[in-house]
C-alpha cells in the first residue's frame, strides 16, 4: 500500500479527515522551507503539498505567484526540491508528500527521469495543474512504473460525463477544486461542497480532498468533514509573507508564525 493510501486508511480509522498544508519550495530560501517542511507533521500536517515554482503560474492568485517568485529567486529547481524531500524522509517515512506544479519544468527535466528521481526522493503523488487527462498520456506510464500517483483535479465546471473520463486513471486521492477561480481568492459554501461530494462519490471510491479557498480553521474543519481532506495553501503563504523583512528574507518569526497557524488549523480538524 502506498503512503497516501495508508495515511487515508489510518485517518478513516481515527474518524477524521486530513489536513494538507502547502508550502512553496525555497520560499523564502532553501533552509527555511526545509525547516518548515520538517516541522509540519508535528504541527498537525497529515499530508504535505510542496509547490514547485514556475515563472508563469497562470492558475494561481497573487499570493502563490509571489511565493513562486521568491522561491525562484532563492534558486528553486526540481533537484533542489528533491533534495528537500530526501532530507525530510530521513526523519519521516510516513507523511505523504505531493508535488504540485506546472508541466514545463517537468518536461524540461525529462518525464522519465523526473518520475524516477521524484520517487527515489520520497515523493508520493503529483498534481500537475496544466496537464488535463487528455494530455497526460506521456506521464502515465513512467509515473505508474515509479509508483507515483497522478492526483486528478475536479472542478465545479467538470460535468458528469467528464467526471468519468477524468477519474478513469485516477489514483491516490481526488483533488476537488472548490471554486471556479484562481488560488487564494473566494471560498465555496458548505452547501456547494456537499452537493459536489455527492456527485464525486457516485463515481469514485478514492478519498477526496478539497482545496482552493480554505483559509480559516472553521473552513478547514468543515471541508475535512464533508470530504476526506482539506488543503490550505494561500492562507499559510500569506502568513509567511507577512513575516519577511523588506528584502523578502526570513525573520525569527517566520517559522513560528506559520506553525502556530498550522496548529490552529489542525486543532479544528481534530476537534
Amino acid at each position: 500500500m502506498s503512503r497516501i493510501a495508508r495515511r487515508f486508511a489510518a485517518l478513516k480509522q481515527e474518524g477524521r479527515g486530513a489536513l494538507i498544508p502547502y508550502l512553496e519550495a525555497c520560499d523564502p530560501d532553501f533552509q527555511t522551507s526545509l525547516d518548515l517542511l520538517k516541522a509540519m507533521p508535528e504541527a498537525g500536517a497529515d499530508l504535505i503539498e510542496i509547490g514547485m515554482p514556475f515563472s508563469d503560474p497562470s492558475a494561481d492568485g497573487p499570493i502563490i505567484q509571489l511565493a513562486a517568485r521568491r522561491g525562484l529567486k532563492a534558486g528553486a529547481t526540481l533537484p533542489r526540491l528533491f533534495e528537500m524531500v530526501k532530507s525530510f524522509r530521513e526523519q519521516d517515512n510516513d507523511t505523504p508528500i505531493i508535488l504540485m506544479g506546472y508541466l514545463n519544468p517537468i518536461e524540461a527535466y525529462g518525464i522519465d527521469r523526473f518520475c524516477v528521481d521524484a520517487s527515489a526522493a520520497g515523493i508520493d503523488g503529483l498534481i500537475i495543474v496544466d496537464m488535463p487527462p487528455e494530455e497526460a498520456g506521456p506521464m502515465q506510464g513512467p509515473a505508474k512504473a515509479a509508483g507515483l500517483d497522478i492526483i486528478r483535479l475536479i472542478a465545479p465546471t467538470t460535468d458528469d460525463n467528464r467526471l468519468k473520463l477524468v477519474l478513469n486513471h485516477a489514483s491516490g486521492f481526488v483533488y476537488y477544486v472548490s471554486i471556479t477561480g484562481i488560488t487564494g481568492t473566494r471560498s465555496a459554501s458548505d452547501e456547494d461542497l456537499r452537493a459536489a461530494l455527492v456527485r464525486l462519490r457516485a463515481v469514485t471510491d478514492l478519498p477526496v480532498a478539497i482545496g482552493f479557498g480554505i483559509r480559516t480553521p472553521e473552513q478547514a474543519a468543515s471541508a475535512s468533514r464533508i470530504a476526506e481532506g482539506a488543503v490550505v495553501a494561500s492562507a499559510l503563504l500569506a502568513t509567511l509573507a507577512k513575516t519577511l523583512d523588506a528584502a523578502d528574507q526570513a525573520t525569527p518569526s517566520t517559522l513560528p508564525s506559520v506553525l502556530t497557524q498550522l496548529r490552529e488549523l489542525a486543532a479544528a480538524v481534530r476537534s
Binding site: 488535463p132 486528478r152 471556479t180 477561480g181
Partner: peptide, 19 residues
C-alpha cells in the same frame, strides 16, 4: 485534439477551463 505534427499544440489548461 488540437495537435500539430508530433505533439505540438494541444490543450494544457487547468481542469476548470477544460469543459
Amino acid at each position: 485534439s488540437g495537435h500539430f505534427g508530433d505533439g505540438l499544440g494541444g490543450r494544457f489548461v487547468a481542469e476548470t477551463l477544460m469543459p
